[in-house]
Design a protein around this nucleic acid. Structure first.
Lengths: 117, 117
DNA sequence: GTGTTACATTGACACCGGTCGATGCATTGA
DNA sequence: TCAATGCATCGACCGGTGTCAATGTAACAC
């Protein structure tokens, strides 16, 4: 994928750690959308399958997730909207990939739990 | 009284990375509950406030979060059930603390996004 | 053209979850 | 004892969300 692109993302400022300093309401809204995207077991498995296989088409997900096709399409859309995966249409198939930078943002948001206390 | 209600969780073994290998349905259900707990902007700010102050009582949260008292109580309960915070009652007040180990589990679940390109 | 395949979209359903007023239960202090 | 405080619980409202059948839209094969 294009490494030449350094994730613009986040209109409400950058995404610092939730634990290092109080987050603003805008940042909280942004991050909540991210976490909510992973707040569903089907989407977690979907992300896991994509991450494990590197690339997966929806037809494969349909089998693995044991859900109807519209349901799988719905979940991929949620993850795409959250920026966690991206799809590329090749012929008749859409191949899904993970967006590691976006996952890193989530992990960074959880960093710094030990600095105080 | 110890409001630490420590849920069973970990039904399908420990909580490895979602991205390193396919997660089981049980693991996905567990982790989804965790992520869903942070899938709300009010709870994210709540966690952030607790982490920043080290210890906070509900009365302080009530002001900072600008929500009614039952609402704040609801959100603290969700975070406690998720194991992300714990409360200790001293006198009339309940003091909330973060559970860093639990946050670490979430961060670990997001590790390994780069193993494959 | 016709038909098939892969996926998105729509609409409808049921259920979940955030919110708050009212109420209950402890604890503190007068 | 009584009043006040801090928090949990209950009940209700309502918008959000997961689910799937039906339909639409491309892309391919013939």
């Amino acid at each position: 994928m294009a490494r030449t692109k350094s994730i613009p993302l986040e209109g409400g400022g950058c995404c610092p750690s939730v634990l290092a300093a109080p987050v603003t309401e805008a940042q909280a809204t942004d991050l909540a959308r991210l976490f909510a995207a992973l707040g569903d077991p089907v989407r977690l498995r979907l992300l896991s399958l994509v991450a494990d296989a590197g690339e997966v088409c929806s037809c494969d997900l349909l089998e693995s997730l044991d859900r109807a096709q519209p349901t799988v399409s719905h979940h991929t859309k949620v993850l795409v909207d959250a920026g966690l995966i991206e799809g590329e249409k090749r012929g008749r198939w859409v191949w899904w990939r993970i967006v590691p930078e976006r996952v890193d943002e989530m992990r960074d948001a959880l960093a710094g739990a030990h600095v105080r206390a």
